[in-house]
Write a protein that binds this DNA or RNA. Structure first.
Lengths: 208, 208
DNA sequence: CTGCATCTCCCCTGAAAAGGGGATTTTTAG
DNA sequence: CTAAAAATCCCCTTTTCAGGGGAGATGCAG
């Protein structure tokens, strides 16, 4: 029996392209397709699916969230993330949420088939291009987002540890008012308006 | 000129083994080794290093933290994580912190050399075994840490987005008081006492 | 049908954080 | 040396959170 592949992508062109490419292979069958997260879940219950090709940019829900959901409800299905660009943060989040691999859309038919066979063996498959992978992560910590000062990073770290302004002040031997200033500057620099968003952003940008 | 490799591992046996294996290869030179995070940083300033093999389990600092630090201070160095087991959560965190790949210690010399050459091309390299990769991530979301209810996860998600209780209440069509209850339950269940720690813990456990 | 968990709503108080100013001293870099 | 940047400290108000309690409605599994 051939490998049952399910495709989730909101671009019809991509779906058609994948259908054609994969349809030419004898050991692979396209079990079905969906254009949104909403459509996907019911369809997965009806079809037997081995591998799911999942676009990261979906209209309703982010592919990352959908990935987590599918992986939870259908642990047997191997998930291969697809995206136009290979952004490091997306990749690691996809992997962290149960994906077994990552494909860029420019991948060849052979590469896609190879990826499908690879993940079915229980291995991870990653297809990556230099430029998009190396620059962002290097640039991310330095340029893009406003540079934080040494002190701000210290305060940020302690905030993340769950300390209050007073506790932080005690640890750094400064006034709580100063800690508050740093905290405000952090919120302003990172463009968020409370601690929760601050921590999330900081972790997303590898500041913690 | 050959590829300069630096090894960081607290097990002398592993270091020696890697040295021997890599030393046999003509295009690879072991530029140096370190047994702890503490030793590593100064040595990296003295040697020109292309690829760094980094053990995840170090005595002083976690390899994941060290990975972040090295990647920030020496963006040019490709980092390959090494560990006995291929735990999904570690892998994605390593990748997220700038690592270019992941090796299990049982890898053959060829595999290690292949990994080094792969990451030097700017690609990711992953070596994984089925069993250790598939089970953990499924178990992680269910067993280990106190199970959160559906509603609690929704609230947690929205808290992380930076919304206040009132905003969350509006989105979920419930009372702000209810949101507050969920919030309190989250803090209690996860054993933290403020939002910052909550978000950090949630991300660490892949709840977000 | 009866627990048990979940979800819901409500009360109170005090602490902490957010939002808005301003000002002064050290460092750091040109 | 001298600006600029960082770090420090201070004031104000309002909102949000944290911690403590209780309690009814719903839904699911035994």
């Amino acid at each position: 029996m051939s490998i049952q592949v399910f495709i989730v992508d909101d671009h019809p062109m991509v779906v058609a392209g994948l259908r054609t490419l994969l349809g030419q292979l004898e050991d692979i069958t396209v079990a079905g397709t969906a254009g949104s997260a909403f459509e996907t879940m019911p369809l997965l219950k009806k079809h037997t699916v081995d591998v799911l090709l999942l676009d990261i940019n979906l209209p309703d829900v982010s592919g990352i969230d959908l990935c987590k959901k599918i992986h939870r409800e259908f642990p047997g299905i191997k998930i291969l993330g697809i995206s136009t660009f290979s952004e490091r943060s997306y990749i690691s989040r996809m992997i962290g949420n149960g994906a077994s691999g990552y494909l860029i859309k420019s991948a060849s038919a052979e590469e896609i088939a190879g990826a499908i066979r690879t993940v079915l063996q229980g291995k991870l498959y990653l297809s990556l291009e230099m430029e998009h992978v190396l620059q962002p992560s290097a640039a991310l910590t330095a340029g893009v987002l406003p540079a934080l000062t040494k002190r701000e990073k210290e305060v940020l770290q302690l905030i993340a540890e769950g300390f209050t302004n007073n506790q932080i002040a005690a640890q750094l031997f400064i006034s709580p008012l100063t800690v508050d200033s740093h905290r405000k500057n952090l919120l302003m620099k990172l463009g968020v308006n409370n601690t929760a968003a601050l921590i999330r952003l900081a972790i997303a940008h590898h500041l913690l």
